[in-house]
Design a protein around this nucleic acid. Sequence first.
DNA 1: AATCAAAATTTGTGATCACAAATTTGGCCG
DNA 2: CGGCCAAATTTGTGATCACAAATTTTGATT
Lengths: 253, 253
Amino acid sequence: MLHWMGTKIPADTSLRSQVYDSLRAALTAGRFTPGQKLSFRFIAGTLGVSLTPVREAIRRLVAEGAIEMQAGRSVRVPLMTKDKILELRDIRRTLEGMAVEKAAARATAAQVARLRRIASELVAVRGRGDTAADRQKIREFHFALYAIAGQPTLLQIIEGLWLRTGPYMNLLYPDYITSPRGPERRLRIIKALQDHDAPTARRAIEADIGDALSYIAGLADAAGNIAPAQPAAERKRRRGRSSPPPSGALVFP
Amino acid sequence: MLHWMGTKIPADTSLRSQVYDSLRAALTAGRFTPGQKLSFRFIAGTLGVSLTPVREAIRRLVAEGAIEMQAGRSVRVPLMTKDKILELRDIRRTLEGMAVEKAAARATAAQVARLRRIASELVAVRGRGDTAADRQKIREFHFALYAIAGQPTLLQIIEGLWLRTGPYMNLLYPDYITSPRGPERRLRIIKALQDHDAPTARRAIEADIGDALSYIAGLADAAGNIAPAQPAAERKRRRGRSSPPPSGALVFP
DNA sequence: AATCAAAATTTGTGATCACAAATTTGGCCG
DNA sequence: CGGCCAAATTTGTGATCACAAATTTTGATT
């Protein structure tokens, strides 16, 4: 639920947005193979809509770099290379470092408390083996952190970068993610925000992002290509009726 | 003309792209008043196309932050505030600084020579009072510089940032732009690239961007709003037939 | 003249169709 | 088995239509 100064911003219920959300979720979860061609009619057919909203959703995703458009006329899931990951690493490290630096200067006690709560929820989820839930909590922590900076444009750009790296972040599981550095760094960041210690906070987030993406870059083969990640494990299904997804959720199989 | 390793990339001739280019050019030149509502049918009618390509072009511009979409259903040219300009200043300073730093490490003699040529052309144009030509040369210099870094994603993000600030850059004319700091800094950057002196190059570009956008932020009124810029002066028309724009150029009046 | 509800118009959205370009298929010949 | 070309199919693009929501205009009433 999006809010702004207590005023509810009405959610965009257009089919276009729903298609966008579905594609975004599928990309982030790695449900498409990198390099896979996505035809408009396949997407429209799968989601049960016409071509029109699909085309507009695709335009947005292309603009955000989440999918790429071939010279001719087809779109496909981008293939990742070591160079591209290293470039994204440098950009993300810098921008997310900037966001945290500004956040440290402004963080209120309530905001710090919220971060602490999310961090402890993450600890609780970790080790349960639910990759999808784990990643969700990580995302929640990071964006709660960046939102404190109060810089909407910066936040939007960072979201775009997460969308580009998203399909490959599953590669961190299970090896990299079990390192205790993550939890330690999150606590260090929280402490630094509490103390308004911007340089320390920045260093911690830069190390976090730098290490994670360097690790992924290290998975590249000799040609510099990085293999696609496996889809995140689904959350446990609710007991009871399982067939139809809740109210109008457009999902890929 | 776009090239890549000697291979011509075929230009996208779709109507969608032409509409996008037209809107982008109009926005950059300040031909729309900030806050102005843009109806799909107005754009389609003006450019003589149907709604379909307009809708897709708009989606892309919205994703890039060049225009914004109201909650309900209309799109408009974003209004600029002091806070937003300062945020864009910080992001641009950082990312363009990063690009120049990488460029300094890689620049070849030929690339430096090209920068020097553009810089001298800019000096030639400067003082002729042709704002549009001046801005075009500035853009050419900056992107030739950033391209040397060889980081396509970074370049794409920077282009998006220029699109957001574009409608307001005319505010630099004629007062700010006549300062001799600009030409001096460009020469300093070129020299630093030649010497592979990354820190000096970064400092120079950061000062360039920081000063320009700080100047624009200083134009805000007490409420923090920044008045729209006047459209850039048109280039001198070629003599001869003046009515129809060259081959299929979709232009706004 | 100011107010406000009803009517008229405008506007974005989604579906559908026609069409050309790209891609795949299938068969033929080497 | 492999290369090549024409037919068949798929695919993205652009135009058009219907429709509901939003906006503007109108006109009656105070």
